[in-house]
């Protein structure tokens, strides 16, 4: 059973608490900093849990899709496949290629070898955020398939980019670098 813990007294952050054989509190990323409010060194752990970010994400996808649709010589099928491909490529690069903390440095390279996906929610599996991020590309694939009338060429392209975003999200692939690609 999982529930959201009450907010931390000093910084207001909610951290996941697992109830099982023994209760594990995950406050290890919260360090005391003298003179300032204590905060997480690594924003990747939690930024996808912030208010409104899921909605923003979906809105961005659809605005982008509308932009593609408004290009005169793009067909509906092409616009949907383009949306899907671009979304999946960007997601792959942001979540599964980029490592460490690209914008913030106070974590001093602890997360240097971890992709963004592996850092989300401190590396916990099947958290709501991770379920959400897995569902979105699948739903996009359904939409792209539907609007391209199940065309084989579109299917191949869409399924390929989908694979790139589903396989690395599996718990079995946590910390795995196939053929040592992107290892260091």
């Amino acid at each position: 059973m999982r529930y959201k813990s009450p907010p931390c007294e000093t910084c207001g952050n909610r951290e996941m608490i697992l109830l099982g054989k023994d209760t594990v509190t995950r406050f290890e990323n919260f360090k005391m900093q003298v003179g300032v409010t204590s905060s997480d060194d690594n924003p990747t752990h939690s930024y996808l849990n912030s208010r409104g970010i899921w909605l923003t994400y979906i809105l961005i996808i659809f605005v982008a899709h509308l932009l593609f649709l408004s290009v005169p010589f793009f067909t509906v099928a092409f616009a949907w496949t383009l949306t899907n491909v671009i979304h999946n490529l960007i997601m792959f690069i942001i979540l599964h290629v980029t490592k460490g903390t690209p914008w913030e440095t106070p974590d001093q390279g602890i997360a240097r070898t971890q992709t963004q996906w592996e850092q989300i929610d401190n590396g916990m599996q099947f958290t709501p955020t991770k379920k959400f991020l897995t569902t979105v590309p699948i739903v996009l694939f359904f939409l792209a398939s539907f609007y391209s009338k199940y065309d084989p060429l579109h299917f191949m392209i869409n399924a390929l980019v989908l694979g790139f975003n589903l396989v690395p999200k599996l718990p079995q692939f946590h910390g795995v670098r196939l053929f040592n690609i992107n290892k260091w």
């Binding site: 999982r2 996941m16 697992l18 916990m124 099947f126 958290t127 379920k131 718990p171």
Partner: peptide, 11 residues
């Protein structure tokens, strides 16, 4: 399966 039958856990 993901949404309804997967419990979150830490590695």
């Amino acid at each position: 399966k993901l949404i309804f039958f997967s419990k979150s856990y830490a590695l």
